[in-house]
Structure formats: C-alpha cells, structure tokens
C-alpha cells in the first residue's frame, strides 16, 4: 500500500492492542493504514473511476469511533481492524482484516 505507512517509534509507548492471535501487545509492534471502511470497488471499467478515486484517496477523519487497519508487523503479521476512539484513545475491539473483509462482503457494503 505504498505511501501512508506509519510506524510508531520507541518513544511513544501508548496503546495496547489485543491481537486475536498474539494477545495484548503495545502499539510499537503495529503499523497503521487508516480507515478500514472504504471497500475496494469491484468494477474495472474506466467509468468506475470516481469510485476508485474515493476508495484510494478519500478517508473520513472522525472524532470518536473509527475502524482502522493495523498490521501486526512486529508479531504474527496479520492485518487487523482495530476499533478505537480517536478522542479518548479507548480501544473497543480488534478483529482480523480477513474476518472484517468477509463480513463486509457478506453485508454487500
């Protein structure tokens, strides 16, 4: 996913994320990729360009809850979706990106 990777450095000891595979780990083991809500368009027709543009570039920046991609790059290497509160830093839950994607595809979002 090229640009947009952010790696937390050693100083920022903050969030604890409970990886479904590895258990509770501090944030420095994770790499983040922003909002997980946008779904990749299924069409390859050039007429779908606007949808693609939204998918690639447009991200909400909510105050409050957000579903966010987190890669357990310093652990089991699973992509996760962490639901956290941008205001309070509270982590509400974590699922694998796989389960999140399957659920999203089922709900047809």
């Amino acid at each position: 996913m090229g640009p947009g990777f952010r790696r937390d450095d050693d100083l920022g000891s903050n969030l604890i994320i409970t990886c479904p595979h590895c258990g509770a780990r501090p944030v420095e083991e994770f790499t983040f990729l922003g909002d997980a809500k946008p779904q990749r368009p299924t069409s390859n027709d050039p007429s779908s360009m606007e949808q693609w543009f939204d998918y690639v570039y447009l991200r909400d920046n909510p105050k409050g809850r957000i579903d966010e991609f987190a890669h357990h790059s310093g652990g089991c290497r699973a992509w996760l979706v962490v639901t956290r509160n941008t205001e309070t830093h509270e982590v509400h839950g974590t699922v694998t990106a796989k389960d999140y994607a399957v659920r999203a595809k089922k709900s047809g979002r």
Binding site: G2, A78, W79, A97, A101
Partner: peptide
C-alpha cells in the same frame, strides 16, 4: 519488506 506487507494486505483484507 514493503512488498511482503502489501501481499499480506491484498490477501487478508481484499481477497481473503
């Protein structure tokens, strides 16, 4: 390393 993370993303998040 970037390509590996990308493959993991494409498989797990897009084409599980």
């Amino acid at each position: 390393a970037k390509v590996m993370s990308h493959m993991e993303f494409v498989h797990q998040a897009l084409f599980p």
